[in-house]
Simulated scan of single mutants.
Amino acid sequence: MNSQNFDLNLLRVFDALMREQNVSRAAERLALSQPAVSNALGRLRELLDDPLLVRVGRRMRPTPRALALEGPIRSALQQIEQSVGASEAFDPASSRQRFCIAVTDYVEQLCMPRLLQQLGEQAPAMRIDIRHLSPSLPAEALDRGELDLVLGRFDEVPARFARQHWLSETLLLALRRDHPLATGSMDLPRFLQLRHLWVHGGQTRGMVDQWLGEQGLCRQIAYSTPNYLQAAHIVAGSELAAVLPSQLARYFASLLPLQLFELPFALGPFHLEMVSLVQRQREPALHWLMTQIAAIGQSAPV
Rank of each mutant, 00 (worst) to 15 (best):
residue 61 R to F: 01
residue 223 Y to H: 14
residue 133 L to W: 02
residue 188 L to P: 14
residue 71 G to F: 04
residue 59 R to F: 13
residue 106 Y to K: 09
residue 294 A to R: 07
residue 219 R to Q: 13
residue 3 S to P: 15
residue 295 A to N: 07
residue 88 E to Y: 01
residue 111 C to G: 08
residue 62 P to T: 08
residue 164 Q to G: 04
residue 60 M to S: 13
residue 85 G to T: 05
residue 65 R to K: 13
residue 282 R to T: 13
residue 131 R to G: 12
residue 129 D to V: 14
residue 165 H to V: 11
residue 45 R to S: 11
residue 238 S to A: 08
residue 167 L to F: 10
residue 218 C to P: 01
residue 105 D to F: 06
residue 90 F to N: 01
residue 16 A to L: 03
residue 173 L to T: 15
residue 244 L to C: 15
residue 62 P to E: 01
residue 5 N to Q: 07
residue 262 E to L: 06
residue 160 R to G: 06
residue 127 R to A: 12
residue 5 N to S: 11
residue 119 L to T: 11
residue 21 Q to E: 15
residue 53 L to V: 05
residue 194 L to M: 13
residue 206 G to Y: 00
residue 215 Q to S: 13
residue 80 I to Q: 05
residue 63 T to D: 07
residue 151 L to G: 13
residue 42 G to D: 08
residue 279 Q to F: 00
residue 234 I to N: 11
residue 241 A to C: 14
residue 70 E to Y: 04
residue 90 F to M: 03
residue 253 A to D: 04
residue 62 P to W: 00
residue 36 A to M: 04
residue 205 R to S: 15
residue 132 H to E: 12
residue 65 R to E: 10
residue 208 V to Y: 02
residue 59 R to P: 07
residue 89 A to T: 11
residue 12 R to V: 01
residue 12 R to M: 01
residue 112 M to K: 03
residue 35 P to H: 06
residue 181 L to C: 12
residue 227 N to L: 07
residue 80 I to A: 06
residue 151 L to F: 08
residue 58 R to I: 08
residue 242 A to H: 01
residue 23 V to G: 05
residue 183 T to W: 00
residue 257 P to S: 02
residue 36 A to Q: 07
residue 300 A to E: 11
residue 170 T to H: 03
residue 196 H to M: 05
